[in-house]
């Protein structure tokens, strides 16, 4: 087991390295740099010193250095929690991202917890009440959740909230808590504001999970050991929990690997629509202005999150399933 963990952790390092390099080069690919647009603005305003100012800025951001040198400076700084300067307002990236990353992390882990709990309850209910009203309702919700894209759902909810209830569901906390230190009131406010985004982001994941759990559980429920148990007079709930549920529960652990990229993708676009103070909107802005350091840091953060999530899911699966532990790859 230890060998397995070590191998997995060691494998993470080259993966992250490749991703970070790729991302850094891609963002820097288009012609021009983040100073260009600022200078254009200054020139438009008739600022005579614009060109000189541009040179100063480029000097400051080190944009005259070759790309690979900037990349290694950036990578080297990461270990000191120094991600270079953000081009937008000449602030260290590290100062900009702290709270956003924390909120993103909170939002994404809440979403995954929501997906698990909701799909577990609904899935088990739908499977044990097959072809009844509840099952049909669950299947319908599942279908809608799978096919309606989350950002459109967010848009519609935003509209409904605004027009019919006079609510603004944007943001992640009440305005009075913004930039305030952590407190109980802030926690409650964040929790209240999390509800809508978590449901919107988790919708498709929940729908998929319900489908799989229902199908798996239905398969198990038809097996002979269940019939035997029932014939022997086991109480239904005990019978359900003790045997078939244990088999059917596998996808919950196995699927976190597939779930995580979806949740992260969803959280980026939904937080742009709902203008949440998470990494999404800032990443979008950074990409649009070619703020290489900022955008690359966010993307690396996303990558680290995914890779760690995958690692956790692999470890959990390995703990559960000896076939994986001993290195056999599962064919799909």
């Amino acid at each position: 087991m230890l060998k397995f963990i070590v191998r997995r952790v060691l494998l993470m390092i080259p993966t992250l390295f490749i991703i970070s390099a790729l991302v850094y080069f891609i963002i820097d690919l288009p012609p021009g740099d983040c100073v260009t647009s600022q200078v254009d603005e200054l020139l438009a305003r008739g600022d005579a010193d614009a060109l000189q100012r541009a040179d100063e800025l480029r000097q400051l951001y080190g944009l005259n250095e070759p790309l690979w040198q900037r990349y290694f400076e950036w990578v080297g700084g990461i270990f000191r929690w120094d991600f270079g300067l953000s081009c937008q307002d000449t602030v260290p990236v590290a100062d900009l991202i702290g709270e956003r990353m924390a909120l993103t992390l909170i939002m994404e882990s809440t979403t995954i917890a929501f997906i698990w709990i909701a799909s577990f309850i609904i899935g088990v209910y739908a499977a044990t009440h097959q072809y009844r009203m509840g099952d049909y309702v669950a299947s319908f919700i599942g279908f809608v959740g799978l096919s309606v894209p989350n950002f459109l759902l967010a848009l519609v909810l935003l509209y409904v909230g605004k027009v019919y209830f006079g609510l603004s569901i944007g943001g992640l906390m009440d305005p009075e808590y913004i930039d305030k230190p952590f407190s109980w009131g802030k926690f409650v406010s964040v929790a209240e504001h999390l509800i809508i985004p978590v449901i919107v982001i988790g919708m498709s994941g929940t729908a998929g999970m319900i489908r799989r759990l229902r199908a798996n559980l239905l398969d198990e429920l038809q097996k002979q050991y269940v019939v035997t148990g029932r014939a022997k007079g086991l109480p239904p709930l005990r019978l359900l929990i003790k045997y078939p549920l244990r088999h059917a529960i596998n996808p919950f652990v196995a699927d976190i690997g597939g779930l995580l990229p979806d949740v992260i993708s969803g959280s980026v676009i939904v937080s742009v629509v709902l203008s949440l103070p998470t990494t999404g909107p800032m990443l979008l802005g950074a990409l649009k202005t070619q703020d290489v350091n900022l955008a690359a840091t966010f993307l690396l953060f996303v990558a680290v999150l995914t890779v760690i999530g995958m690692l956790i899911s692999d470890l959990a699966l390995a703990a559960l399933d000896p076939r994986i532990r001993f290195g056999a790859t599962s064919e799909k």
Binding site: I18, I19, I26, I264, I269, L287, V302, A303, T306, V307
Partner: peptide
């Protein structure tokens, strides 16, 4: 594996931001 495990949307964003405006 790398492509599948990485969230697509941020990558799409980065790639399409890389298409030159010109």
């Amino acid at each position: 594996e790398i492509i599948k495990s990485f969230p697509h949307l941020p990558l799409w964003l980065a790639l399409s931001a890389a298409l030159p405006v010109t």
